[in-house]
Protein backbone atom coordinates (compact mmCIF):
# COMPACT_ATOMS: atom_id res chain seq x y z
CA UNK A 1 0.00 0.00 0.00
CA UNK A 2 1.02 3.65 -0.27
CA UNK A 3 0.51 6.54 2.10
CA UNK A 4 -0.01 10.27 1.83
CA UNK A 5 0.20 12.99 2.85
CA UNK A 6 3.39 12.78 4.93
CA UNK A 7 2.76 15.90 6.90
CA UNK A 8 0.03 14.20 8.89
CA UNK A 9 2.20 11.20 9.70
CA UNK A 10 5.28 13.25 10.38
CA UNK A 11 3.47 15.43 12.83
CA UNK A 12 1.36 12.62 14.27
CA UNK A 13 4.00 10.98 16.44
CA UNK A 14 7.66 11.65 16.77
CA UNK A 15 8.09 9.03 19.45
CA UNK A 16 9.95 6.67 17.14
CA UNK A 17 11.66 9.44 15.22
CA UNK A 18 15.00 8.50 16.74
CA UNK A 19 17.46 8.67 13.88
CA UNK A 20 19.14 11.49 12.06
CA UNK A 21 18.67 11.91 8.32
CA UNK A 22 21.94 10.24 7.48
CA UNK A 23 21.13 8.40 4.28
CA UNK A 24 20.16 10.26 1.12
CA UNK A 25 17.92 8.05 -1.02
CA UNK A 26 18.20 8.58 -4.78
CA UNK A 27 15.18 10.36 -6.30
CA UNK A 28 14.85 7.56 -8.84
CA UNK A 29 14.00 5.08 -6.08
CA UNK A 30 11.24 7.34 -4.83
CA UNK A 31 9.86 7.85 -8.33
CA UNK A 32 9.66 4.09 -8.92
CA UNK A 33 8.35 3.13 -5.46
CA UNK A 34 11.58 1.24 -4.78
CA UNK A 35 12.38 2.67 -1.36
CA UNK A 36 11.91 0.44 1.68
CA UNK A 37 8.38 0.75 3.11
CA UNK A 38 7.53 3.08 5.95
CA UNK A 39 6.52 0.84 8.88
CA UNK A 40 3.33 1.56 10.80
CA UNK A 41 2.01 -0.11 13.92
CA UNK A 42 -1.41 0.98 15.13
CA UNK A 43 -1.22 3.74 12.50
CA UNK A 44 1.88 5.14 14.23
CA UNK A 45 5.03 5.34 12.12
CA UNK A 46 7.74 3.16 13.62
CA UNK A 47 10.41 3.59 11.02
CA UNK A 48 10.87 5.66 7.87
CA UNK A 49 10.83 9.24 9.14
CA UNK A 50 13.90 10.08 7.15
CA UNK A 51 12.30 8.63 4.01
CA UNK A 52 9.15 10.65 4.58
CA UNK A 53 11.08 13.88 5.08
CA UNK A 54 13.11 13.32 1.95
CA UNK A 55 10.02 12.43 -0.09
CA UNK A 56 8.31 15.58 1.14
CA UNK A 57 11.33 17.71 0.33
CA UNK A 58 11.59 16.50 -3.25
CA UNK A 59 7.87 16.62 -3.85
CA UNK A 60 7.09 12.88 -3.94
CA UNK A 61 3.42 12.50 -2.95
CA UNK A 62 3.32 8.80 -1.98
CA UNK A 63 5.55 6.14 -0.41
CA UNK A 64 5.34 2.37 0.00
CA UNK A 65 4.15 1.48 3.44
CA UNK A 66 3.68 -1.65 5.54
CA UNK A 67 1.46 -2.15 8.56
CA UNK A 68 2.59 -4.54 11.24
CA UNK A 69 0.66 -5.98 14.18
CA UNK A 70 0.69 -3.94 17.33
CA UNK A 71 3.47 -5.05 19.66
CA UNK A 72 5.29 -4.11 22.84
CA UNK A 73 7.20 -0.87 22.54
CA UNK A 74 10.45 -2.71 23.21
CA UNK A 75 9.84 -4.94 20.17
CA UNK A 76 8.91 -1.96 18.03
CA UNK A 77 12.15 -0.27 19.08
CA UNK A 78 14.11 -3.38 18.05
CA UNK A 79 12.34 -3.32 14.68
CA UNK A 80 13.15 0.36 14.18
CA UNK A 81 16.84 -0.12 15.07
CA UNK A 82 17.10 -3.27 12.98
CA UNK A 83 15.62 -1.52 9.95
CA UNK A 84 17.87 1.48 10.42
CA UNK A 85 20.69 -1.06 10.31
CA UNK A 86 23.64 1.17 11.17
CA UNK A 87 25.05 -0.75 14.13
CA UNK A 88 28.26 0.87 15.30
CA UNK A 89 27.73 4.14 13.50
CA UNK A 90 24.98 5.85 15.46
CA UNK A 91 25.79 9.32 16.64
CA UNK A 92 25.63 10.33 20.29
CA UNK A 93 22.47 12.31 19.56
CA UNK A 94 20.82 9.14 18.24
CA UNK A 95 22.05 7.15 21.24
CA UNK A 96 20.56 9.85 23.42
CA UNK A 97 17.22 9.54 21.58
CA UNK A 98 17.21 5.77 22.00
CA UNK A 99 18.08 5.94 25.68
CA UNK A 100 15.46 8.59 26.36
CA UNK A 101 12.87 6.46 24.53
CA UNK A 102 13.81 3.50 26.74
CA UNK A 103 13.69 5.52 29.94
CA UNK A 104 10.32 7.12 29.14
CA UNK A 105 8.84 3.74 28.28
CA UNK A 106 10.45 1.82 31.14
CA UNK A 107 12.42 -0.38 28.77
CA UNK A 108 15.51 -1.92 30.32
CA UNK A 109 18.61 -1.15 28.26
CA UNK A 110 19.89 -4.70 28.09
CA UNK A 111 22.73 -6.24 26.12
CA UNK A 112 20.35 -7.26 23.33
CA UNK A 113 19.39 -3.64 22.66
CA UNK A 114 22.97 -2.42 22.95
CA UNK A 115 24.13 -5.04 20.47
CA UNK A 116 21.66 -3.79 17.88
CA UNK A 117 23.03 -0.29 18.34
CA UNK A 118 26.74 -1.00 18.60
CA UNK A 119 28.72 -3.24 16.30
CA UNK A 120 30.94 -4.85 18.90
CA UNK A 121 31.39 -4.77 22.65
CA UNK A 122 30.49 -1.45 24.18
CA UNK A 123 30.99 -1.10 27.91
CA UNK A 124 28.94 1.27 30.05
CA UNK A 125 26.66 2.21 27.16
CA UNK A 126 23.95 3.68 29.33
CA UNK A 127 26.41 5.45 31.63
CA UNK A 128 28.26 7.02 28.72
CA UNK A 129 25.05 8.06 26.98
CA UNK A 130 23.76 9.58 30.21
CA UNK A 131 27.01 11.50 30.48
CA UNK A 132 26.50 12.81 26.97
CA UNK A 133 22.97 13.87 27.88
CA UNK A 134 24.37 15.77 30.85
CA UNK A 135 26.90 17.72 28.77
CA UNK A 136 26.26 21.41 28.15
CA UNK A 137 24.96 22.13 24.65
CA UNK A 138 28.25 23.43 23.30
CA UNK A 139 30.05 20.26 24.36
CA UNK A 140 27.30 18.08 22.92
CA UNK A 141 27.75 19.91 19.64
CA UNK A 142 31.47 19.21 19.67
CA UNK A 143 30.95 15.51 20.39
CA UNK A 144 28.01 15.15 18.03
CA UNK A 145 30.05 16.64 15.21
CA UNK A 146 32.82 14.13 16.01
CA UNK A 147 35.27 16.90 16.80
CA UNK A 148 35.88 15.43 20.23
CA UNK A 149 35.54 11.91 21.61
CA UNK A 150 33.27 11.23 24.55
CA UNK A 151 36.11 10.25 26.87
CA UNK A 152 37.94 13.52 26.35
CA UNK A 153 34.67 15.42 26.65
CA UNK A 154 34.08 13.85 30.05
CA UNK A 155 37.45 15.10 31.23
CA UNK A 156 36.88 18.71 30.23
CA UNK A 157 33.19 18.98 31.06
CA UNK A 158 33.83 21.69 33.63
CA UNK A 159 35.38 24.06 31.08
CA UNK A 160 33.21 27.14 30.62
CA UNK A 161 30.81 26.89 27.69
CA UNK A 162 32.23 29.97 25.91
CA UNK A 163 35.59 28.16 25.64
CA UNK A 164 34.03 25.12 24.06
CA UNK A 165 31.93 27.25 21.75
CA UNK A 166 35.07 29.12 20.72
CA UNK A 167 36.92 25.90 19.96
CA UNK A 168 33.97 24.84 17.82
CA UNK A 169 33.92 28.19 16.08
CA UNK A 170 37.65 28.02 15.33
CA UNK A 171 37.59 24.39 14.33
CA UNK A 172 39.96 24.89 11.43
CA UNK A 173 42.77 25.96 13.78
CA UNK A 174 43.19 22.53 15.36
CA UNK A 175 43.33 18.99 14.10
CA UNK A 176 41.29 16.36 15.95
CA UNK A 177 44.15 15.30 18.20
CA UNK A 178 45.36 18.89 18.71
CA UNK A 179 41.84 19.85 19.78
CA UNK A 180 41.78 17.07 22.37
CA UNK A 181 45.19 18.08 23.73
CA UNK A 182 44.27 21.77 23.67
CA UNK A 183 41.06 21.28 25.63
CA UNK A 184 42.63 18.93 28.16
CA UNK A 185 45.53 21.28 28.80
CA UNK A 186 43.24 24.30 29.01
CA UNK A 187 41.19 22.41 31.58
CA UNK A 188 44.32 21.50 33.54
CA UNK A 189 45.58 25.09 33.55
CA UNK A 190 42.14 26.27 34.71
CA UNK A 191 42.12 23.73 37.54
CA UNK A 192 45.73 24.29 38.53
CA UNK A 193 45.48 28.08 38.63
CA UNK A 194 41.90 28.21 39.92
CA UNK A 195 40.82 30.36 36.96
CA UNK A 196 37.29 31.72 36.87
CA UNK A 197 35.08 31.39 33.80
CA UNK A 198 36.00 34.82 32.49
CA UNK A 199 39.74 34.27 32.87
CA UNK A 200 39.59 30.82 31.30
CA UNK A 201 37.63 32.13 28.35
CA UNK A 202 40.08 34.99 27.88
CA UNK A 203 43.00 32.56 28.00
CA UNK A 204 41.29 30.31 25.50
CA UNK A 205 40.71 33.20 23.10
CA UNK A 206 44.32 34.42 23.39
CA UNK A 207 45.61 30.94 22.67
CA UNK A 208 43.31 30.34 19.74
CA UNK A 209 44.23 33.70 18.24
CA UNK A 210 47.92 32.75 18.30
CA UNK A 211 49.54 31.17 15.24
CA UNK A 212 50.29 27.94 17.14
CA UNK A 213 47.68 27.55 19.91
CA UNK A 214 48.88 24.10 21.03
CA UNK A 215 52.47 25.20 21.50
CA UNK A 216 51.48 28.34 23.35
CA UNK A 217 49.13 26.50 25.66
CA UNK A 218 51.72 23.79 26.28
CA UNK A 219 54.09 26.50 27.52
CA UNK A 220 51.42 27.67 29.96
CA UNK A 221 50.72 24.11 31.11
CA UNK A 222 54.40 23.16 31.43
CA UNK A 223 56.18 26.44 32.27
CA UNK A 224 59.35 24.87 33.70
CA UNK A 225 59.80 22.38 30.91
CA UNK A 226 59.14 24.93 28.22
CA UNK A 227 61.59 27.45 29.69
CA UNK A 228 64.18 24.66 29.87
CA UNK A 229 63.52 23.83 26.24
CA UNK A 230 63.92 27.48 25.34
CA UNK A 231 67.20 27.69 27.22
CA UNK A 232 68.47 24.52 25.57
CA UNK A 233 67.51 25.81 22.16
CA UNK A 234 69.64 28.91 22.69
CA UNK A 235 72.68 26.73 23.40
CA UNK A 236 71.90 24.43 20.52
CA UNK A 237 71.59 27.38 18.15
CA UNK A 238 75.03 28.66 19.13
CA UNK A 239 76.54 25.36 18.05
CA UNK A 240 74.32 24.90 15.04
CA UNK A 241 75.82 28.03 13.53
CA UNK A 242 79.14 26.18 13.62
CA UNK A 243 77.65 23.08 11.99
CA UNK A 244 77.48 21.13 15.27
CA UNK A 245 74.28 19.43 16.41
CA UNK A 246 73.62 19.37 20.14
CA UNK A 247 70.92 17.07 21.48
CA UNK A 248 69.48 16.51 24.96
CA UNK A 249 67.77 13.45 26.41
CA UNK A 250 63.98 13.43 26.01
CA UNK A 251 62.37 15.78 28.50
CA UNK A 252 65.83 16.26 30.04
CA UNK A 253 65.46 12.85 31.65
CA UNK A 254 68.94 11.37 31.65
CA UNK A 255 72.53 12.36 32.25
CA UNK A 256 74.18 12.97 28.93
CA UNK A 257 74.04 15.45 26.09
CA UNK A 258 75.21 14.48 22.65
CA UNK A 259 77.05 16.40 19.99
CA UNK A 260 77.44 15.36 16.40
CA UNK A 261 79.18 17.05 13.53
CA UNK A 262 80.53 16.23 10.13
CA UNK A 263 84.03 17.37 9.16
CA UNK A 264 85.58 17.33 5.76
CA UNK A 265 89.18 18.35 6.38
CA UNK A 266 91.72 18.91 9.13
CA UNK A 267 91.01 22.63 8.91
CA UNK A 268 87.28 22.07 9.15
CA UNK A 269 87.79 19.69 12.09
CA UNK A 270 89.93 22.24 13.93
CA UNK A 271 87.32 24.91 13.39
CA UNK A 272 84.70 22.74 15.06
CA UNK A 273 86.97 21.80 17.93
CA UNK A 274 87.62 25.50 18.52
CA UNK A 275 83.90 26.18 18.48
CA UNK A 276 83.41 23.42 21.06
CA UNK A 277 86.16 24.84 23.23
CA UNK A 278 84.46 28.21 23.16
CA UNK A 279 81.20 26.51 24.04
CA UNK A 280 82.78 25.09 27.19
CA UNK A 281 81.88 28.37 28.92
CA UNK A 282 78.22 27.36 28.65
CA UNK A 283 78.62 23.80 29.86
CA UNK A 284 77.66 24.44 33.48
CA UNK A 285 74.51 26.26 32.41
CA UNK A 286 73.69 23.36 30.14
CA UNK A 287 74.03 20.80 32.92
CA UNK A 288 71.62 22.70 35.16
CA UNK A 289 68.95 21.45 32.75
CA UNK A 290 69.41 17.84 33.85
Amino acid sequence: MTISPFEALLSMSGEYDLFLDIKAWPKLLFENNLTPPVILADDVPIWGFSLMRQARDIGIPELPCMRISPAEKKDLLYIAIALENRAGSYSWEERKNILEFCLINNIAVDDAIIQTIEAGRFTDWQKKTEKYIGFPDSLKKLVQSRMLDIKSAEKIVSLPEPCIALVYEKKEKLTHSERRIFLEQLHEVMQRDGLAEKETSALCRTMLDAPDPVKLLEAARYPNLSSMQKEFLQHAQLLRKQGIALSAPDNFEGEAFFIRFPFVSRQNFNKKVNALQAFENHIDELFTLL
Binding site: E188, M228, F252, E253, G254
Partner: peptide, 21 residues
Protein backbone atom coordinates in the same frame (compact mmCIF):
# COMPACT_ATOMS: atom_id res chain seq x y z
CA UNK B 1 45.54 18.85 42.38
CA UNK B 2 49.01 17.28 42.37
CA UNK B 3 48.35 15.86 38.90
CA UNK B 4 48.39 19.40 37.53
CA UNK B 5 52.09 19.72 38.30
CA UNK B 6 54.62 19.13 35.51
CA UNK B 7 55.16 15.43 34.89
CA UNK B 8 57.20 13.96 32.07
CA UNK B 9 57.42 10.40 30.76
CA UNK B 10 60.54 8.62 32.04
CA UNK B 11 62.45 5.73 30.56
CA UNK B 12 60.32 3.14 32.35
CA UNK B 13 57.13 4.66 30.93
CA UNK B 14 56.08 6.17 34.24
CA UNK B 15 55.46 9.89 34.59
CA UNK B 16 57.52 11.74 37.15
CA UNK B 17 58.34 15.33 38.00
CA UNK B 18 61.00 16.82 35.71
CA UNK B 19 64.38 15.35 36.65
CA UNK B 20 65.74 18.73 37.76
CA UNK B 21 62.79 19.20 40.10
Amino acid sequence: PWLYDEFVPCRDGKHRYIQRI
